[in-house]
Amino acid sequence: MSEATAHHADTPRRRRQINLPYVGLAPAWLLMIFALIIPILIIIAVSFAVRGAYGGFDWGFDLSGYRQILFNEGWTGEMEFTPQYLIIILRTILLATVTTVLCLILAVPVAYWIAGQPGHRKSVLVFLVTLPFWMSMILRVYAWMIILGKDGPLLRFFEFFGAPSGMTFMYNDGATLAAMVYTYIPLMVLPVFASIEKLDGTLIEAAHDLYGNRWTTLRRVILPLTAPGIASGGILVFVPAFGAVLEPTLMGGGKQMMMGSLIQLQFGGGRNWPFGAAIAMILMMLVMLVLVGLALRSARNEVES
């Protein structure tokens, strides 16, 4: 062992540092190429392809997939501006944003409280936060359908206190949001918890010593120092919430389409794959914009500090 170490010390270190990371990262790169980059290239190619008559596509170059997002033949047979897809896209952005904000508001106090617990209890609590992930997502949504549905415990509770019969919690935006926030909140709690845990308690004490009240301390000390955790939690929640299909259909009653269900319709019954792929590209680009924006901001912050 000591011989080997001595030998290593003799060889020029620089050379090794250049080579090894590439070799060592090869599996990760291969995985990225086959599981991420090639599929995305295929989606890009399909979005420019010519639609097949009965689903599928033929290779070619056709922009109609993208054109259809804004312009379609109207009921009178003339090309006209059709806002419906924009409305669906904007609604999806709104839903994902509201979900992220609600998750943040609920997750920060929870994470802060967990971080303040003694060691053993802390790990139990973190474990409990991750517990829902052990179950399939669709089961969790169904559980919410039971909780909020007719004969469900919540309705029973309100009826006991004289709520009018015929009242319902299901099939509205509130129900969708409840399930969305519930599904994604662990993704927010964990990164926020990680950054709060690293927070130096003496800084908070210092803030109090300098006559900062609780609100000032939160705003000027705790939030700026936990910003990286909040940002990564925000990304982790926003990105999947953007593609959500289950919650809006099952809980919201499916009365208003989201981008996820729109894509599903185009690849399924609509039989217009290039259009579906084009919408998927738009979805991906919007997510990229958010991510790049955040990355640029944090890079700038680092330079400043």
Binding site: Y54, Q84, M257, Q266, G269, G270, R271
Partner: peptide, 16 residues
């Protein structure tokens, strides 16, 4: 495909 597009259009406008 033309008829199917009309069906899809009905559906997207219904749920837009």
């Amino acid at each position: 495909p033309k008829a199917q597009d009309l069906v899809t259009r009905v559906w997207t406008q219904l749920l837009q």
